Amino acid sequence: MQNSHSGVNQLGGVFVNGRPLPDSTRQKIVELAHSGARPCDISRILQVSNGCVSKILGRYYETGSIRPRAIGGSKPRVATPEVVSKIAQYKRECPSIFAWEIRDRLLSEGVCTNDNIPSVSSINRVLRNLASEKQQMGADGMYDKLRMLNGQTGSWGTRPGWYPGTSVPGQPTQDGCQQQEGGGENTNSISSNGEDSDEAQMRLQLKRKLQRNRTSFTQEQIEALEKEFERTHYPDVFARERLAAKIDLPEARIQVWFSNRRAKWRREEKLRNQRRQASNTPSHIPISSSFSTSVYQPIPQPTTPVSSFTSGSMLGRTDTALTNTYSALPPMPSFTMANNLPMQPPVPSQTSSYSCMLPTSPSVNGRSYDTYTPPHMQTHMNSQPMGTSGTTSTGLISPGVSVPVQVPGSEPDMSQYWPRLQ
């Protein structure tokens, strides 16, 4: 039975679970980093996980050691009161100082060594604690504590007292930064006198190289990059290397530039699409467009005044059976039934097929058609009795279509119309 579990990581490298990497692998990681390889490249070359490479390099940059820390136990506290007071002093002298600059000053002034120097995250935590204590304490208590930490007896009751030896409130920041720059020169002199001055200088240079600022491109470089971006948004590694040799930039910087440029292009394309949609959409909808001609068919113009009344309900007709019959029939052209047409008796099958359309009241044959006459024609229609054979009435077949029909004066039988409509 094995005491430890061995495995293979996602890159194909072998590791022992819970145990640190061998010293030979750690040394190779540092050597590759000094030669300029990126952590992701080191991870692929040595088949070590990216997190492990970053952790080893980060500890090497901070402490200069590649040895693993002790497994188990607690780390001794490195942010001692003396170190905290120095950090507060540096922050007062130059409020814009960075944590890694404070760390360098602690090393250069001999406050800490490589073994007990606090990390950048520890210094940031100390600065946050100082800021929170400043908010919790009152103004007087804060000034007393700062005077105690600074070891001075001057008056701290006013704002300019934060910067000793100065009279203009805006000047101390520059003086403090100048003092810090002077301390940086002392850093070089002190570290050069040490035993491991060369190694420390190499480590600091490598650290500065990794902690780079934003790349500033010249106009020629920007023009070359934009020209390549117009050709393709995704250049391959050969195109990037050719462009890197042409404009004297690292291939990694060119790759990052193209990634950022593609993101910018997507944002601009989104804005262009929004403007295009806004320009195509009308600002207001016309009133006429809300009524579609496919839904509402136009009603033909009436030929006679009587045809303006298109349904039985508008003429005072309360018989719903006839109203439904007229509205359900398709529109037909106007025609006239003459008196000489043969009077065919209704076929029983045809009569039964339209039995649902006729009223059940037996008085329908005896009703006159003056009910369908509009009010303004009552006088004219009353002067001509319906009993004469020459009287013409208008029957409504569908809305908007008038059918003048000659009705025999002897017997106005409704059943004569249905064979004609089939």
Rank of each mutant, 00 (worst) to 15 (best):
H5G: 10
M142F: 07
K75Y: 06
K86P: 04
D115L: 08
K75R: 09
G72Q: 00
V111T: 14
N50H: 15
R38W: 05
N150D: 08
S119P: 02
A88R: 07
L130N: 11
Q89D: 09
K86G: 14
G138Y: 10
I29C: 04
P39W: 04
L21F: 03
P81C: 10
V53S: 02
D140L: 12
A37M: 08
G72M: 00
C112M: 05
I66G: 03
R147F: 09
D104W: 00
I117W: 06
S132L: 11
S108I: 10
R67G: 14
V84L: 05
M142C: 09
N50P: 00
Q10R: 09
V48M: 00
I66Q: 05
V78I: 10
Y90Q: 13
N124S: 05
Q135F: 11
S132A: 13
V111R: 14
R26W: 02
K145Y: 07
V14P: 14
N124E: 03
D104G: 12
G64S: 04
I29P: 02
F98E: 02
E133T: 14
C52F: 03
Q27E: 14
V78Y: 04
S24R: 13
S54T: 14
G138Q: 07
H5S: 09
S49I: 03
G64V: 00
A33T: 12
E109D: 12
N3Q: 12
Y60E: 00
S96H: 12
A88M: 08
I45V: 11
V14M: 09
V126G: 06
S96V: 15
L146H: 07
L21W: 00
Y60G: 02
T25R: 14
E62C: 06
S35Q: 11
V48P: 05
P81V: 12
I123G: 01
F15R: 05
S108N: 11
Y60R: 01
T80E: 02
S65L: 12
I56S: 03
M137T: 12
D144E: 09
S35F: 09
D41V: 10
C40A: 15
H5W: 12
R128V: 02
P118L: 13
G73I: 00
G58R: 00
S24T: 14
W100L: 05
L11E: 04
D104Q: 12
I97L: 12
A37R: 11
G7P: 15
T63M: 03
P118D: 00
D144M: 11
R92Y: 05
E93S: 14
R59D: 00
L130G: 09
